[in-house]
Every structure is written in structure tokens, then in C-alpha cells.
């Protein structure tokens, strides 16, 4: 009897211990499930929050304000030269891109001349993606200052001045608004309180972002991208290498039999003669 009783006690204790172990295992599982649920919920909530927050923070693809005279369906393009010129040169360039600087220093005298003769209108897409890879704000601030110059009616001259004074790609000199304002003094009539405020307040920051987002979505991946009447001509048009002479020749070929546009209609100071720019270093591999 006592033997049996002892045995029964032991089994009861064993059973109790087994139950407790089972309960503990169950608690552990529950705990694990709760932790897992919390972790997955946190990660998912973070991703959703990110989409919502960044959606609110991102600048619209259609800008709220665009510089005076900007063209295109979202007013992202700055035209230079007569609107009724028979040929259009479309240029995507970044104020900080060295290849763009090289391109501008080599071709701006020719381009300005073609504009003044009513042969060519240039459509500028002032993009600003170099800031992304190199850090800094020189592309964005430079692009904004160009938009401010467009407001003031001095886009072309200021544009030429900026590219002639372009810093090294790795230097973010254009990120310093004072540098941009100092360079504006080289353009007669541009340095006004209105222009200064426009530069200092990044008045066209939203527009600059919209222009870049448009470029992001385009099929063009590098700058300068230069199209003559829609055909890429930089660094080559077909087999022919671009040069100031070839550019003038191509424009004349495209314009054959067409009336030149009205001249001097852009309301900007005359282009410097072809010798007025800094010495043209021949473009090395762009």
C-alpha cells in the first residue's frame, strides 16, 4: 500500500513537472511569436511610413513656380534665341559637369552667333544630378541662379559666365551662393537686390528639382546631351565629330530653304565675338 502510494505520488509529481515544462515551452513559443509579430510589424510600418513621409517631402514633378519665359508643357525648359528660328538645339547640362564646361567653352561663341543670326533657338534643360554623386549643392544652387538670371532677362550671359568660371568637378564652389552672386557682377545689369534675393532664397528650388526629375525619367543618362532638331550631335553626329565649324554647317544644312527667325528678339546683350571667350582648349576625351 505504502509502496503503491509512493509510486502514485511520484507519478503525480512527474506529471506536474511535465505539465510545467509543457507550459513553459508554450509560454516561450508565445513569447517568440509576439516578438516576431512586433518585429515584422515594426519593419512593415517603417516602410509604409517612409513612402508616406517621402511622398510629402518630395517636390512635385510639375513645378509650382517657373522662371519667366520658360517653355514646355511643364515650363521646365529655358529658351534662348528667336522662338521662330528654323532649328532647335536641345541641351541638357549640369552647372557642375566638367564635360559641359568644356562643351560650353568650345561652342558658346558659335551658338550665340547662330542665335543672333536667327538660325537657332537653344532649349536648355538645366539639370542638377552631379550633387548626388559628389555631394554638395553646387548643381542645384547654380541651376537656381540660372533660373533667377532668366527672370532678369540675362540667362544667356550669366550661363556663359558660369561655365567659363566653372570650378573643378570635385570642388563645390557653386554651392556657395556668394560665389554665384559675385560671378553675376560680370553680367551688366544682373546684380540687383531681386536677383540676390532669388539666389539666396533658392526661389526656384522646386523648379530645379522638377527639371532634374524630368531628366531622370528621360532616356538620356549623361551630360552634356546635345540634340539638333532631335538628333544627337554630341560628341558626334553620325560619323562626323562635332566642332564649331561642323555645328554651323549642320545648322545651315538643316535650315536650307527656310527663313531665319527674327533676330535680337531674346532681349539679351549681344553675344561676344568668337574671340571674346577664354582660349578654347580643344576638348579632350569628354
Amino acid at each position: 500500500m505504502s509502496e503503491k502510494n509512493r509510486e502514485g505520488k511520484r507519478t503525480a509529481r512527474e506529471r506536474m513537472m511535465a505539465e510545467r515544462a509543457a507550459q513553459e515551452a508554450k509560454d516561450k513559443r508565445t513569447k517568440k511569436l509576439v516578438v516576431g509579430g512586433v518585429v515584422v510589424a515594426v519593419v512593415a510600418a517603417a516602410a509604409v511610413t517612409g513612402v508616406v513621409v517621402q511622398n510629402q517631402r518630395s517636390k512635385p514633378e510639375t513645378p509650382v513656380a517657373a522662371p519667366t519665359g520658360a517653355i514646355g508643357d511643364k515650363s521646365l525648359v529655358i529658351p534662348s534665341g528667336a522662338a521662330d528660328a528654323p532649328s532647335t538645339l536641345t541641351v541638357y547640362e549640369d552647372p557642375r559637369c566638367p564635360a559641359c564646361g568644356m562643351y560650353e567653352r568650345t561652342f558658346s561663341p558659335t551658338i550665340d552667333q547662330l542665335e543672333d543670326q536667327g538660325k537657332l533657338q537653344v532649349n536648355y534643360h538645366v539639370v542638377s544630378f552631379i550633387d548626388r554623386s559628389l555631394g554638395g549643392t553646387g548643381s542645384k544652387h547654380g541651376a537656381n541662379a540660372l533660373a533667377c538670371a532668366q527672370d532678369a532677362g540675362h540667362f544667356r550671359d550669366y550661363h556663359d559666365v558660369l561655365y567659363r568660371n566653372q570650378p573643378d568637378e570635385t570642388s563645390d564652389a557653386f554651392g556657395d551662393k556668394q560665389v554665384l552672386l559675385d560671378l553675376a557682377k560680370q553680367v551688366p545689369g544682373l546684380s540687383t537686390p531681386v536677383f540676390e534675393a532669388c539666389v539666396n532664397d533658392s526661389k526656384y528650388g522646386g523648379w530645379v528639382s522638377a527639371v532634374q526629375q524630368d531628366f531622370d525619367k528621360s532616356s538620356y543618362k549623361s551630360t552634356p546631351t546635345v540634340l539638333l532638331n532631335g538628333t544627337p550631335i554630341y560628341p558626334k553626329k553620325g560619323d562626323e565629330q562635332i566642332s564649331p565649324e561642323n555645328l554651323a554647317k549642320w545648322v545651315d544644312e538643316a535650315n536650307a530653304g527656310k527663313q531665319p527667325g527674327s533676330t535680337g528678339s531674346h532681349g539679351q546683350s549681344p553675344a561676344p565675338t568668337s574671340t571674346a571667350s577664354e582660349p578654347n582648349t580643344p576638348p579632350t576625351a569628354p
Partner: peptide
Amino acid sequence: KPVGWGLPFLELALALLLLLGLG
């Protein structure tokens, strides 16, 4: 856009959880 915008926040959530050692 959803991926470009959500991913960095997801990465930050992972960083936080790893820092805490949770899950």
C-alpha cells in the same frame, strides 16, 4: 518611388531592432 522611398526607412528599422537586439 515606393521602393526608393520605403527602403531607407525599412533599413533604419532593421538598424534599430539590431541595436536593441530584438527578434
